[in-house]
């Protein structure tokens, strides 16, 4: 049986450097390799010996699109090592900051990186020629997320205000007040954006994934919760290493994480939605269903819908805070 190998040397419109090889025999994919050739930067090694208060500023530099995710994980890790719990208004403001990042980075992903694939454009700029209004709406929404980051983080990228134990400076009530109108308008735009992505042609494709995400007792998870899965995993974050294994394969500088004894698993918004749809609130859950996103969705193409729903959620949660 002849096997052909299809190779994409440089995956575009994704963050990070990767190539993809697919082995094809008799019209079916029989093997594949995702090679991340992004050169290693050795964060795990260079963090040793740093003061714990420096860690969030350093880990932010892992990724400029979602620095808050790395700052939050670092701050929570250091706080749990020190036995500190950040609660009350500070915890709420951290949620707000994270909502800002979700809006900004989900919309970047959806409109500028992912939507062109569905509509057959090489990039969002050429897409803007015929979908100008939608691209502009996306940019406006992204800007609203950035406004939240700018106030709470003091800048959109690599915010300087995240600190082990809370913030360096908490904005005043008067400074926070205008965000309500921003988020109110953003929510409208997010709903329109979700309706737009729901019209995309989704291939009919399903696979039997195990979904893994945080699960929190009473809220849609941003920073806290237990690690759960669609096949019954339910562990403390601290027990991550007992359930997961990070493997190093020859063709990739990124470690591959697998569930011990079970293999690969599915993360990110679709997984989070599948495990936590009941924490979105009845209105939003029904809105998702109306757009064709039902709990238990196993079509990876529909993950863009889960992104869209999370953007609406982030606007609503931001307003609640």
């Amino acid at each position: 049986m002849a096997t052909k190998t299809l190779r994409v040397d440089y995956l575009t419109r994704v963050e990070g450097e990767g190539a993809l090889e697919l082995d094809i025999a008799e019209g079916a994919v029989v093997g594949g390799r995702l090679s991340i050739f992004e050169p290693p930067r050795f964060f795990e090694a260079l963090l040793r010996g740093r003061d714990c208060t420096e860690v969030p500023d350093i880990t932010a530099r892992i990724c400029g699109i979602c620095p808050v995710a790395y700052q939050m994980s670092a701050a929570y890790a250091v706080e749990s090592a020190l036995g500190i719990m950040v609660e009350g208004p500070l915890r709420a403001l951290r949620r707000l900051l994270y909502c800002g990042e979700w809006i900004e980075s989900h919309v970047l992903h959806m409109v500028l990186l992912h939507a062109p694939d569905f509509l057959g454009f090489p990039d969002a700029i050429s897409m803007a020629a015929s979908h100008g209004e939608t691209v502009r709406r996306g940019l406006a929404l992204k800007k609203a997320g950035n406004e939240v980051l700018r106030l709470l983080g003091r800048r959109e990228v690599h915010p300087i205000n995240v600190r082990v134990g809370g913030f360096y400076r908490v904005p005043s009530r008067a400074e926070l007040a205008p965000l309500a109108a921003t988020l109110e308008a953003a929510r409208e735009q997010a709903v329109a954006l979700a309706r737009w992505v729901a019209t995309f042609p989704f291939p009919d494709f399903k696979r039997d994934y195990e979904f893994v995400a945080l699960r929190h007792a009473d809220e849609y998870p941003l920073n806290e919760g237990r690690i759960g899965s669609s096949r019954g995993l339910d562990i403390n974050v601290a027990d991550y290493e007992s359930a997961f294994e990070e493997r190093h394969v020859p063709h990739s500088t990124a470690l591959q994480s697998v569930l011990r004894g079970r293999g690969s698993y599915f993360v990110r918004p679709l997984a989070r939605f599948n495990l936590n749809h009941d924490r979105l609130g009845p209105g939003l859950e029904a809105f998702a269903a109306g757009l064709g996103l039902e709990p238990g969705c196993r079509n990876p193409y529909r993950s863009i819908l889960a992104h869209a729903i999370e953007v609406v959620y982030a606007c609503e949660e931001g307003l609640r805070v």
Binding site: E15, E38, R41, G64, I65, P67, K142, N146
Partner: peptide
């Protein structure tokens, strides 16, 4: 190459 991507994404920002 070895970087966090933000500086180029500043263009999209």
């Amino acid at each position: 190459f070895a970087s966090c991507d933000d500086c180029q994404f500043s263009l999209l920002d």
